[in-house]
Each structure stands twice: as C-alpha cells, then as structure tokens.
Write a protein that binds this DNA or RNA. Sequence first.
DNA 1: TCGCTCGAATGAAACGTTTCACCGCTGTCG
DNA 2: CGACAGCGGTGAAACGTTTCATTCGAGCGA
Lengths: 347, 347
Amino acid sequence: MSSGESNRRTGEVSIKDVAHRAGVSIGTVSNALNRPDRVSSDTRSRVRAVIDELGYVRSESARQLRSGDSRMVALLVLDIGNPFFVAMSRGAERATREHGLGVMMCHSAQDSEAESLYLSMFAEQRVRGVLVTPADTTGANLLTFRRHGIPYVFVDRVVDSDDACSVSVDDVAGGELAVRHLLETGHERVAYISGPSNLAQCTDRLVGARRAIEAGGLGPESLTVLETAKLDVASGRDAGARLLGLRPRPTAVFCANDLLALGFLQAMFDAGVRVPEDIALVGYDDIEFAAAAAVPLTSVRQPAERMGSTAAEMLLRETEGDPGHEHESVIYSPELIVRRSTLPRRQ
Amino acid sequence: MSSGESNRRTGEVSIKDVAHRAGVSIGTVSNALNRPDRVSSDTRSRVRAVIDELGYVRSESARQLRSGDSRMVALLVLDIGNPFFVAMSRGAERATREHGLGVMMCHSAQDSEAESLYLSMFAEQRVRGVLVTPADTTGANLLTFRRHGIPYVFVDRVVDSDDACSVSVDDVAGGELAVRHLLETGHERVAYISGPSNLAQCTDRLVGARRAIEAGGLGPESLTVLETAKLDVASGRDAGARLLGLRPRPTAVFCANDLLALGFLQAMFDAGVRVPEDIALVGYDDIEFAAAAAVPLTSVRQPAERMGSTAAEMLLRETEGDPGHEHESVIYSPELIVRRSTLPRRQ
DNA sequence: TCGCTCGAATGAAACGTTTCACCGCTGTCG
DNA sequence: CGACAGCGGTGAAACGTTTCATTCGAGCGA
C-alpha cells in the first residue's frame, strides 16, 4: 500500500526495500548493518527502525555469495547416540559460538555412505571448516575440501600431521590402562569386546590391551577378541551372549565402549552371571550413565568436552588468517576411573 | 596452465570454468546438472567428465539465492544431552533425508537466548522449515518465520492448531499413568520432581499426577512437588538430597524425566536408601539407559523416533506445494513400562 | 522445395548482498 | 583564499547460479 515492497508474492523484504523506505541508498543500509561506524548515528537509527518495521532479515546466501565467507562450521560425528560424542559436540559448539559462528551438527551413523553425503553437502555450502570423526577411509571424501581450501580437523583420531590438525586421546594407552587394571585385580583370562575393526579407536585399544597382557607375562591366548558390528548397547548384549558360550570362560571383560559395556552388563544380568564376582567389566569413555549403571562401571575417561572445544579452536585458528599455519596434533591422556564393576576378586 | 580457471587465488572453480572447458554454455552445464533430460547424452557425459576433472562443486548459496529454495531443514531441540531428544532427532533426520534434504541440528540448552540466536540464524539461512521443541515463550521468536513464510512444526508440545502443526504425547495422561501406578502399588505419599516450571511438559505431567491423586481419593497434601532448574542428572541428585530432608518422607517419587530419575537414584544410593524398598521411583521417556540403571527404572515411554519422523513428514508436506494446507496436531499416547524400581511393597 | 516442429544449445537477466571507487560538503590549516 | 582531509553517502559492479526467451539446425510431411 505505502511505498516500496518489491516482492509482494513471497513477502520477502530485501535490503532494497529497506533502503527505499529509509530514503537512503542500498550501500548505506549495508554499511549500517556491517560497519555501523561508517554511518552517521542519525541515519543508522533510522535504518534500524525501518528494518524492525519491515521485518527485514538479511539473506545469508546472498551475503555469502558476495563476500565469499561462511558463518558456519560443520561437525560430523560417528554416532550421536553415544553420549561421548554428544559431550564432544557440546564443547565444539560452545567454542564455535564464542567466535560468532554457527554449528551444523550431523552424524554419520558409522555409515560411510551417509558420511560422504554429508561431506559433499558441507562442500556445497562452502562451510568455514569441518570437524570430523572419521568413520572409514574418510580420506577420499576429504579430498574435496583440500581442493576448496576448506580446513578440517580430525577429532578422536590421530592423523599424519601434514594433512590436517587433530585432537585425540592415546587409545593405546587407554587400552593398556584398562587391561593392566584387570590383571592387577587378579584376572588371567580377559576378553576384549571390540567394535568394528575399521575404526581406529577399536584397533588401537586392542593394541594397548595386548601390550598389557604381554607386560603382565601372559601369553596371547589369554586375550580373546570378540568383534561387534556397531558400538552400541544392542551389540554389547549380543557380545555378552556370545561370550557366555566361550570355554574356558574369561573372568574379565574390556569393552571398547561404555555402550557395549552397558549392553554386556544387561546380558550378564539376564543370564544370572554376577558382575564383578563372576566377571569383571571395564568400559571406555566414562559417559554419565556409566556411574549410574546397575553395577557402576569402571571406565577409561576421555576429556570429551575439552576435545571438542580444542578441536574447534584449532579449526578457527586455522581459519582466521594465520598464513603460516602449521598443522598440529593434540593428544590427551586417558584416565582410569575405578568403580564397582572391577572390585578385586576375593582370593 | 591449460585453459580457463577463473579464480586462481582461491582455487574455486565455478560453473563458468566447467562450461568453458567443456566447450558449452553456462546454461547447458546447469541443465546437465539439474535437468539431464534436456541435454544430449553426448554433451551430458562430456560435462560430467569435466566436472570430475576440475573438481567442480556447485555453490549452494548461489543456487539458493537464485532459485529461492533451500535444501535444509533446521531442528532445534531443548537438550541434546537427553537421549530422548537424540532419538527424536534420529527419526527426523531419517525422514528428512529420504526427501533429499539435509538437517541442521542444534540445541538450545534450555536457554531462551541461545534459542533465539539459533532461530534468527535459521531465518537468515532461509531454511526450508523448522522443527522446534520450544523452550520458553518461543512464540515471539517464531514470528519471524511466519513473516517469511517459513513453516515450522512443534515437537513434544501441543499447540493451538491454527498456528502450526505439532506432534506430541499426551503429557497429562503420562503423568496420570505414572502416579496411578504408584498408588496402585500401595503408596500414599508421593513426590513429583519437576523440571523448570516454564516447560509445558513438566507442568502437564504435574496436572496428570494431581488428577491421579484425586482419582485415588487422596488429598492434595499427598503430593509434594520439588522443582529443579534443569532436566538433567545433576538436578536429579540435588532433588534427591532435598527430598531426603522432607518429613514425612514420601515413599514414592515420580520424576519428570529419566535423567532426573537416574540422578535421584544415585542420591539414594549414596544415602543408603533402598529403591524400591524404601522409595519407589518412576521416570519419564524410557531412554535406553533406564533399563540399564542400577535399579532398572519404571518409566513412561514416548515414541521418540516416531515423533521425530512424523514431525518431519508433516513439515515436508506443508512445504511441498499443498496449497490448502491445514495445520494438524498429532498426539500420541504414552505407555507405562514397569521395571524393578516400582516393585510392589511387601505388605 | 517450403514451411513446421522439435530437440539442443545459447545468452542474458535476475536473485540480494558486499565492496569499492567516487562525489559533494564542511571545516581547517597554511 | 585555496588546497585538502575526512565524513557521510552514492551507484554500480561482482559473486555463481537458475531460468527463460530465443536461436539454430535438422528432420519431415505436404
């Protein structure tokens, strides 16, 4: 009715409408928004008023197209059903938001196809950077990003340092910590319930477990490995059932993951096997629910939230100028939290 | 070195480079990508080859700017630390991806400021639609979306149907279910541990609880309400400590949330109070960890994943044409899952 | 052979910003 | 009094797509 709405159909109001209505040029509106100091306080407030009146919202795609930089960071985790990754995300999100950027969180469900789908979506969006917990041979997918100069940081995965930054925890040390503890509490037949063997986390923890066995003067036959398809509670239950069929039955179990351990615990309950009296149990990640479990879980703690924030900060540092950027790898140390599930055996 | 890279600095290769290199016009490349049938199979394959060779990735911002439609749906949940919302997200994500769209997941951490920040980010992105678990008086924030014609669907919250679609569970019925069960197992002094009172979920469940008390022929003094600041494990522990000071002490507790219940359970353990012998306990949501808890939790189950997928489908239906769209509200029924935490008292 | 249709490809306009070179005005300094 | 700096503002180009009207041939029926 009044003056200058350009696009009556969609109801979209553009910077042009604001300019017209405020009686200034387009450039001035843009300046009022992005460099308020370049504009007299008089027009500035007039522009702001018109913006409110018209309900103008700047179009991010136009902004990004022209200015070339994105305000969005992508975060791709293996499994959002795992509280460990959730904690990590929280850290990453906090750090990112402190820099005024948004986070786009996705999870690959440990599925390599979904992963590559998301990664190409990120590439099309020209995100500012990517935090990624690699599922598979993510390398091929990430090539696109290198090509576009989009930086990425690996989380929960060590990586050759000339490729990208990474934040991780020493998984070998973690595995060793767990199994050494089991040996020290008097066990000699240990099972390792691993996730899928294409995950570096799982295999590294196995290496550590083997190292502890060896250091304890035991033979490799003292360690049985059960592989599972996923790192979740259901897989833990399955593995529990399988383990009960083993002869001789291990007296201690180390799970690659707290979710597996919780599932395993349920299977033991259902079968009437007591933890820790009949079987001792160690998990990994020390998620919040480990302490609240039927039998509170001994677990290897990782500084999840810190990992996320550190990774985000590394990414942003790489992003913000810093021409002579050197990729670096931060490696945290795991910590063993002892609870009831590994109470020492009565001799 | 060879022919036509336009932008040597950034390494960005645009549709123009592809066109030049393939010896066709820009429009043809675009058609090869978006309407392959409009282009001869000969040129189509040539274009595809060049795209691979050059590593071209289409710019989503340019696409969106010109064509006006976004390929992204936003999902804003209250608390991603709550497995209930994670399950919901998973359902929403699956349904959305089946329609070829991406999901941008964020969580407001029950913080109204963060919520409005994210919502305005979504608006600037001109997302295709928004799935939102409203924290506060989200209404004001959502006004922007209405103005821009961006549809939104409420999840886990009923709402006046002429405003938007919604998917929820009957929280009053859930609260009633829980408390009725407690009364039926012989309790007469019940406590309700509520989350923040600005969450409709919490207050609705309270209404249900009161209704059950009344239906059981008890007076309102039989129900004590303890409010907590958040819906998480730590708040549950706090509430547990507070509850132990109450005289007379309730013999049964209904928590607005499984996280609260798990925290509460820990507090009871620490204090040497037995569940269910001394205090019976009911949670809400039936998250995966409820069954694995120290004492397996009786809980009110909600179809989380289904809620997410339904909400996404409603949103997409509203999005995809469908001119005479009528907002609708789907309300699911909760279900009581009885476990050990409410084993009947020995008379 | 002429007119027509149809398929394939082209060229340019448009989307909503940011950015940059430029302009006019007002003081101020020499 | 003239040059000049600086402020506040303008106008237009450019970003990388999609889309649409148009063109160009080739095939074909009359």
